[in-house]
């Protein structure tokens, strides 16, 4: 089809809403201004404050605040928790999305609702349920104490609470994707003689990879940034059970603003990186289609 406008251009024309008139240009400008002002007040100002305060006493002081052993421990703990939680939730997310997207079974809608639960429940409650289960006065408290296992006020508790809070992210990203893409390619692979694993790695995974990456990024961001649930189960033992967000709070309460904002700036950087990757992923996904 060499003659005439190409397909994409025609689609673009058909998609564009309305005609370009003076009024519509003014309305457009007004909306963009309002949105930008809103973003400036709520997003950019705090972001700038974080970096400004962190660097207020010079770059050397900023760097030296990371040399504190407690701060390093907090960073290490946060990375460890993320390293455990993100792969587990990725596997869970794929399994749940697979089950929901590809099979019909009773209680499917209940399962979907349950996956959304951690988003609906306040993070503090999510932390509390683990205290109630595994705390000294909890259901399994006595047994755990007898066997000398500590969950609450220790790393396992933090991992559990973070797992709970972040498990919807990968699943929620994949469910609509799997439902929309359907089963045909998998069925084709099976009739061509491929087994389950081969079908998954060569057909399903490439199909869903960008959605999966996006889900993993979101999951990771939440895992590193979680405050409420972790705060309840951690016990705030410096150098042992403080994650980065908790450490920021401790430093701040000690009027150590530079260090507090320095650690905060790390978390903010993480958010910025996440957004950049997300934009890239969405751009890739759009190009694919």
């Amino acid at each position: 089809m060499a003659i005439g406008a190409d397909k994409e251009m025609l689609a673009e024309l058909a998609r564009r809403p309305g005609r370009d008139t003076l009024t519509s240009a003014i309305v457009k400008g007004a909306f963009i201004t309002v949105s930008l002002l809103f973003l400036a007040a709520l997003l950019f100002a705090p972001l700038i404050t974080v970096f400004a305060t962190a660097l207020e006493k010079g770059f050397d002081v900023y760097i030296s605040s990371f040399k504190d052993s407690d701060t390093l421990a907090a960073i290490r703990l946060t990375l460890t928790v993320a390293a455990i939680v993100v792969p587990l939730n990725t596997i869970f997310g794929i399994a749940a999305a697979w089950a929901i997207g590809k099979f019909e079974f009773r209680g499917k809608s209940v399962l979907i609702t349950l996956i959304d639960l951690p988003i609906a429940v306040s993070p503090v409650i999510s932390g509390l349920i683990y205290v109630l289960l595994f705390g000294i006065h909890g259901w399994f408290g006595l047994w755990l104490q007898e066997n000398d296992i500590s969950i609450i006020y220790a790393v396992p508790g933090i991992v559990l609470a973070t797992l709970f809070v972040t498990f919807p992210y990968v699943a929620r990203e994949l469910i609509p994707l799997m439902e929309q893409l359907g089963n045909d390619e998998e069925e084709a692979a099976i009739t061509l003689g491929a087994g389950g694993l081969m079908t998954f790695f060569h057909v399903t995974l490439p199909k869903i990879r960008w959605g999966l990456v996006y889900g993993v990024i979101l999951c990771n961001a939440r895992a590193m940034g979680e405050f409420g649930a972790v705060s309840v189960v951690s016990g705030h033992i410096r150098g042992l059970t403080t994650t980065m967000p908790l450490h920021v709070e401790i430093l701040y309460n000690e009027y150590n603003f530079v260090s507090a904002f320095a650690v905060a700036s790390l978390l903010t950087l993480l958010a910025v990186v996440t957004l950049v990757i997300k934009t890239f992923v969405e751009w890739r996904g759009y190009r694919k289609r």
Binding site: D184, E185, E187, A188, A189, T191, H202, V203, P206, K207
Partner: peptide, 10 residues
Amino acid sequence: FVFQNYALFK
């Protein structure tokens, strides 16, 4: 097996 909507591996 040939499917109605091709089902090619994209």
